[in-house]
Amino acid sequence: MSAAKRVQQWATFARTWHIFDCKWQDPYQSANVIKKYLMGLHKPIYHPMNDCGDVVVCINSREIALRGDEWRKRAYFHHTGYPGGASWTLAWELHNKDPTMIIKKAVYKSMKGNLQRRHTMERLFIYPGEEIPDDVMQNVSNQIRQQRLVPQRLDHIPEDEVQQYPKVMEYPSDYVLK
């Protein structure tokens, strides 16, 4: 092995596949994280002209969480190009139509508009549920840490765990719960 080949590190330029679980995550905050991996901003060899971005697979995009009453207030604008062709779609309507669209638009908007943006978006895969095609799943080798803890829903706690939880008091047998 020659001296120059000894330090050649092909893995530096390899494309890594990351997986990101969108469950209960704010799409606009997680877009900034996803963007970092898509553009290769997490590598010390980053350069805008250097094609060092990774592939990100988003799962559970149907389970995203928007803050406040953004589901009802946030509107997505579209114009057909014809007079009177403007339309505003509310976030919940868009989510019902296509559960991957909100996260896709959030990532798209988080990146600067240049010629590279659409090619970078090609490296983003979004799936509404947990089912991923096998040819995608076999490449995944890293998981991106979620921004927020996923809380457990009260009605999803197992029954025996609820029974064993210490109580302050027992309700009287004739007490009527409101």
Binding site: H42, P44, Y46
Partner: peptide, 13 residues
Amino acid sequence: NLWDTRITAACEQ
């Protein structure tokens, strides 16, 4: 800016 981006990336590791 480029150096800062690279240093931030390396620090994260």
